[in-house]
Design a binder for these strands. Structure first.
Lengths: 216, 216
DNA sequence: TTGTTGATTTCGCAA
DNA sequence: TTGCGAAGTCAACAA
């Protein structure tokens, strides 16, 4: 990890073109060859080059290129700081509460998606990709379920494609779109296609019953 | 801009929960209060907190919180480097070649989308969002145009929805899907729905005629 | 290698 | 403030 504070101008040419006028910025060069330029504001870097890429430094001009032909040219005018550290391999981030989790919990409690639902299987395969959950309802009908953290229009389209594919195979079949948040447009599109929307409560799914024991 | 190299553990609790075991990392604290933790690999930070947020340092434990109640807790075990620099305000990134540009250029030159096309309007409003361009062809028919940098399957779905909405209003109506790059799957889906695909050449759109004057 | 999907997506614009 | 769509989206995983 090399950290350089320098006054510089930057030009990027690749998927689009960008230019950065002269200013003082942080240049971060990592062990994998990646480089990012940071200003005093914002989480995202102003410019960057993802690995794998190669950096060639020559006479105050840094040229970073990758295989796709994208190029970052940094003209360094003045260096205020330059230091390097060996950080070693990071053990990595442990996550809890993403979509895979929701699907897991729903598989165990599909009744929150509708009374009398029972699980047929998770990741039900089709030739255009797996359906998150397939269940059966009390009347023996099939239910294809798409699970999302944020329910947007794309998710409804995705479920619609699955329903078209599975309709001839599993009959009768209906769709349920389940998400922690549901965008209004997604609700409208789902309704117009006869798809039921369900809003999920993550804490409730994990089992709020243990937090609020009912004695009566 | 404060740069700290330190051995630390990190816990985030907010939209999800995460944990980082002890390791040496770069902690980047910017003037806007934002903080990000970087490992030796990858462009994206391992953990971060976007501004606005507040940092409270007490006895080797850094607590960063925001208004939404998200919290980042950093337990600093050993500091290897700690320095600060004033970078000042950055003049900012100048971009060239994004979708808005394409749409602008196409509005002026819709004939590249088909002979005899004339513009009706940009951002033609519908109740499910604006259509990039609406044109009329030489026969008086309407043409709905979706413009993308990268033409993928989602864009075809989007245009299809617009066509369904506008069909009853503008008649006769057909669709054109225009992009700098067209994925094969997008072409297939478009063809199956009677949508014409057009590959755009950005340089040509900007006006190659000035570079190659024709005397004959 | 290519494609698909999720993401603490982030970011900007408009209503 | 909220909602919606674009992004040099990034990154992980499957085919």
């Amino acid at each position: 990890m090399r950290m350089v504070i320098a006054r510089c101008t930057v030009d990027y040419s690749g998927r689009l073109g960008t230019h950065l006028p002269s200013a003082v910025r942080l240049l971060l060069i990592k062990a994998d060859g990646s480089i990012s330029l940071h200003a005093e504001f914002g989480i995202k870097p102003l410019n960057w080059m993802s690995p794998p890429c190669t950096l060639v430094e020559s006479d105050g001009v840094w040229r970073v290129t990758n295989k796709a032909g994208e190029q970052l040219m940094i003209t360094v005018e003045e260096v205020l700081h330059d230091s390097s550290y060996e950080l070693g391999l990071d053990p990595g981030l442990v996550k809890d509460g993403v979509e895979a989790h929701l699907q897991e919990l729903l598989a165990e409690r599909c009744q929150v998606l509708g009374d009398g639902l029972t699980l047929v299987r998770r990741e039900y395969p089709t030739d255009i990709g797996p359906v998150d959950l397939v269940c059966r309802d009390a009347d023996g009908g099939y239910v294809a379920v798409e699970v999302k953290r944020r329910g947007e229009i794309d998710g409804v389209e995705q479920l619609t494609r699955y329903l078209e594919r599975l309709g001839p195979v599993l009959s009768p079949l209906r769709g349920v779109f389940a998400a922690q948040e549901l965008k209004p447009q997604a609700k409208v599109l789902a309704a117009s296609r006869g798809i039921t929307c369900v809003t999920l409560d993550y804490d409730e799914l994990r089992g709020i019953e243990s937090d609020t024991p009912r004695l009566f």
